[in-house]
């Protein structure tokens, strides 16, 4: 019987040393283990709606229910303005972007601890676990976009040329979320209280970001401080590209994108520094 073909780009001789860090880099590792990444993502997607009464209907119901509640509380009761588009569309678009960010951040942060038996027993690039939470979050986002498109057509709200920039906003939001998620997951391996701190932080961030309201409602003197939150320009920008509302100032966009990229690079660096210890600590 012939020897099986080499796979996963393993070199013929593997040397294990105390300092033998991965040779492929984060992107290379993830590419070499893309099948595992897909399998884990596939597992999470299947499990999410198995043994639930409403099944896949949840994907549609969740964003709609969230936007309905926001519309009632902030649009009807508080009467917040919404940059000239129907309030429901306004908050639905922001919530979709927010759910993308929060979904990646919370799922990625918990991914290592939830899979601790795997980490203790089997080797694979650990970043596969946080990264495998991306597909589910992106699929949810795409479904929300389709719903939004339908509702915009019905409400006769037309997007402008800026809709072409949607992938860029998504990329920036995903990088920011994954960078934070990589740090969060690495911290959670050693410190389990991170899983209680994180939801509180995410909840606070929701109200510090333009989800239920527009940055144009923020008083002038707080605006500089307000835009320090990188989510502010990114969510404003995503909404502007979808609904044709005003774009945030360019300098804030540059700031948001820089922070997103920086967070991602930092998160990857921290993760790779700590990753070899995970099996001993978890």
């Amino acid at each position: 019987m012939p020897p099986p073909p080499p796979t996963h780009a393993d070199p013929p001789v593997l040397v294990i040393r105390p300092d033998s860090a991965r040779t492929l880099g984060l992107a290379g590792d993830l590419w070499a283990f893309r099948d595992l990444l897909w399998s884990l993502a596939d597992r999470d997607l299947r499990l999410r709606y198995r043994q639930t009464a409403l099944g896949v209907a949840w994907v549609l119901l969740q964003p709609v229910l969230g936007a309905l509640i926001f519309t009632f509380v902030f649009g009807v009761v508080a009467g917040l303005p919404s940059d000239g588009v129907p309030y429901f569309l306004f908050t639905f678009a922001s919530l979709a972007g927010w759910a993308l960010f929060a979904g990646i951040l919370t799922r990625a942060s918990g991914s290592l601890v939830q899979n601790s038996p795997l980490i203790a027993k089997v080797w694979f690039p650990r970043a596969v676990l946080p990264a495998s939470t991306l597909p589910a979050a992106l699929i949810d986002f795409l479904i929300a976009l389709l719903l939004l498109g339908g509702m915009m057509a019905w409400a006769e709200v037309a997007p402008g040329i800026a809709i072409l920039t949607v992938p860029l906003w998504v990329l920036a939001l995903a990088m920011l979320a994954l960078g934070l998620g990589l740090i969060g997951s690495a911290l959670m391996v050693s410190y389990r209280d991170v899983q209680h701190i994180l939801p509180v932080g995410v909840q606070l961030l929701l109200y510090a970001s333009p989800v239920a309201y527009s940055a144009s409602n923020v008083p002038e003197r707080f605006l500089a401080l307000y835009y320090l939150n990188p989510l502010a320009p990114l969510l404003e920008g995503l909404r502007a590209s979808l609904l044709g509302t005003p774009m945030p100032p360019t300098n804030t966009i540059v700031w948001g994108a820089t922070v997103a990229l920086g967070t991602f690079v930092l998160g990857a660096a921290v993760f790779r520094r700590l990753e070899r210890r995970f099996a001993d600590v978890i």
Binding site: R17, P18, L47, K121, V122, W123
Partner: peptide, 30 residues
């Protein structure tokens, strides 16, 4: 390769498959 050594090295020629514990990675709901 689950945990790195503190000293020394191991050279492995070829793909390594480990069966460390039965059912590690099985998910009961799947």
């Amino acid at each position: 390769r689950v945990t790195p050594p503190t000293t020394g090295e191991v050279r492995l020629r070829g793909r390594v498959g480990s069966l460390l514990e039965v059912g590690t990675g099985f998910h009961p709901e799947l």
